[in-house]
Each structure stands twice: as structure tokens, then as C-alpha cells.
Amino acid sequence: MRVYVPELNYINALDFSKQLFELKVRDGVLLMDFNRMRNYDPFSMLVVSSALREFGKVNPKIKKRIDVNESNTNAQYAGHMGFFKSISNRVSVGKKPGEARGSSNYIPITPINLEGLREESVNENIYITQIIENKSKKLGQILAQGNKDLEYALTFIIREIMRNIEEHSEADTIWICAQHWPRYQLVEIGILDEGQGVMKSLKKNVHYRNLIKDDYTALELALKPGVSKAFRIYNMPDGIWDNSGFGLYMASNICTALQGSFLISSGNSCICNRYDRDINDIVCNRIDTRMNGTAIRMTISTEKIQEYEAIQKLFVKQGEELAKKMKKSIKQASKSSKGLIDYLD
């Protein structure tokens, strides 16, 4: 069976993941045809490669083959980013995930082993969230190209998503891929895990079980301030790295306030909030998909990046005010979610 992989924008990638999940093939060969593709965005490469890896796990008797013109410039870019080998290490096209050294404007598809982070935390006798902070800062520096405001923003949103995965996903690996296009004043970051998903994680907290009907309502709840699997009555964050449930709320609002977008997909649903220049407002869309774990796409326009610090403070204030009105939320953001960790540098 030949399957044509579509242009890899985020909508097509999510739709392809759903189609692949619903595909019924008992045996034989699945030929993945990439020759119609010209576009390989970071988030989309993560989603499609994850979907194809999962298809291989569910259908072990089916052999996967790829058809791609290696002389095509866009295919060479995807290969260099580790896309084809992230589908299977048996593929001969391009570099392995994490093999490319990266540059001043991109991070190739890179797997980050969570057990390795925990071992590093034990060996160095520091919190694992500090390890994640250090790695996030390095990634932010690569993409920021010397712009300190952009570096702070990217470090913050990458860290909040990575620590969320470590604390809640029960996954083995964090997958990340990113690109900065200075010409378009745009940064895109894709982060994915293949863990238990948002709904299953939040439902482990007895306070949320009756509020969650499906993946979509779980995502809606997760984007609110103070919502966390770690929530319990009367808890307050005391330490700098405490889980206060503000990470997704802060990251999503910072991205859209910086005229970008924030997308989160888990299970069979996806929420995408994006700034629309035509109406000068935020548009929220729901997309049906199907995937294991959780995938997040964040984009930032660098046009307003000098306003980052004020934007961050604004959403900390608004988030805490909103959380105080909610019965089942942590009322105060932790110091790390407020961004108050400069002294650790």
C-alpha cells in the first residue's frame, strides 16, 4: 500500500496522524511517498514521525518503506533535521535524530531521554527541574541569535513544557524540534511526548474526574491557571520549582500575546489558539486528530519581543486572579512559573 504524506503544515500533520491511526492494513508493505512534499515544519515533522513509529509498533508485521527524492532540497533539509531516521533507524536517508549539530537558527529533531535527566539530577545533586532549566536555556540561546528578550521568552516556554512532560506524562522521551526564520521574524518550536496524554494524567486527580468528559475538555481544563495533577486542597507552592499548574497557561498566553500561536494536541483532540492579524485578536480552533501522548506547537513573532517581560508579568497577575475564582486550582504561581529565577544564572 502506498501512502502519500501531505505537505507538512500543522493541520495536515494532525490529519495524517488521524488517518494513519484509522488505516487498516493486516500485512504487506506500507510505502510512504514523500515526493509530493515541499514543506517540513518542526512540529509537523515530530507529529508525523511519531505517528509512523506508533503505526510500526501496532502493526509489527507490516514493513515500512519510504520513497523520497534525495536530491530534492526540501527533502535534504528534512533529512538533515533527522526526520526520516526518526521514523525508523533502518532508513538510510539523512542524519539520525540529534546528530546534526544545529546552528544559530534551528534545533534538529532531538530526543531527550528523561531517565538520563533524572540520573544527571542525582549525580549532580540538584533538582531535575534545574537540569531542565539549563537545557532549555541552551536551546533558547541557539534560537535567539543574541536577542536577550527572545532568549528569556524561549527559555521560559521551553522549560515549562519540558518540566510538564517530566512531571506528568510518564513518557520515556521528550522530542523537540525548532526553527527561527529571521526573514519572517518567526520562531516555531515543536515538543512532543508519547506518554499517557493529558486526559489520563488529569483524571488521576480525584478533584478533576467529574469535570473531564473527553480529551477536549481535558485540554480546556489544562490550559487554565492553577490546574495540575498535583493539585490538592489548600496546597500552595513554597519552593522555586514547585508544580503550580501555571505552565501551560503562561506559555499559551505568552505565545499569542507575542502575535504567535499555541497548539496542544492529545488523544483525539487539539486546541489551537493563534493571533489573527486581520482582526487583531486571538482565534481559538478545535481540530480532530488521533495520537498517543501530547504534542505542542508554539510560535512567536519577534516583532514585539521587547515587550516580553511586561507580558509575562501581566499574565502572572491575571492568572493568579483567575485561579482565585476557581474552586479546584492552585491559587499562586510558583517562582519559576513567574520567571523569577535570574539569580540562578
Rank of each mutant, 00 (worst) to 15 (best):
E167T: 11
K229H: 02
S337C: 12
K24R: 14
A78M: 02
A78R: 04
N253W: 11
E7H: 10
E115F: 08
Y40M: 04
T289A: 00
C272Y: 09
L202A: 09
A75P: 00
V198M: 07
L340K: 15
I330A: 09
I142R: 15
Q141D: 14
A333H: 12
K324W: 07
L31F: 06
V198I: 15
T302P: 01
M37P: 00
L8V: 03
R118D: 07
F231H: 07
K96E: 15
G102S: 09
D342C: 00
S228D: 04
L20P: 01
Y249E: 06
V5L: 13
R163Q: 15
N253G: 13
H80T: 12
I174Y: 09
F262P: 03
K304M: 07
F34D: 10
A230P: 01
N39L: 13
P237D: 06
T302H: 04
K325W: 05
G140E: 07
H207R: 11
R90Q: 12
P42F: 08
S86Y: 10
K229Y: 03
V316W: 02
P42R: 12
N123P: 04
A78D: 01
D193T: 07
G247A: 13
D288Y: 06
I157N: 02
V198G: 02
G245E: 10
L139D: 04
I128R: 12
I233G: 02
E321T: 04
E99V: 00
K95C: 01
R232D: 07
S261K: 01
K138Y: 01
D172G: 03
E119R: 14
C270G: 01
L14R: 11
L150R: 05
F83H: 02
L23P: 05
P237V: 02
P97S: 13
L314T: 13
L30S: 09
K63G: 10
M162A: 14
V227Q: 06
S265Q: 12
A323K: 01
I132V: 15
S169R: 08
N123Q: 11
W181H: 08
E119Y: 12
H207Q: 14
D278W: 10
H168C: 05
L186Q: 03
F156P: 00
I264K: 00
I174T: 06
R277C: 07
I62H: 06
Y40R: 05
I165R: 07
I109T: 13
N125K: 15
Y343A: 01
Q332V: 13
I311E: 06
I131N: 09
D345M: 10
L258G: 02
Y275G: 06
T173K: 02
E133V: 02
S301W: 05
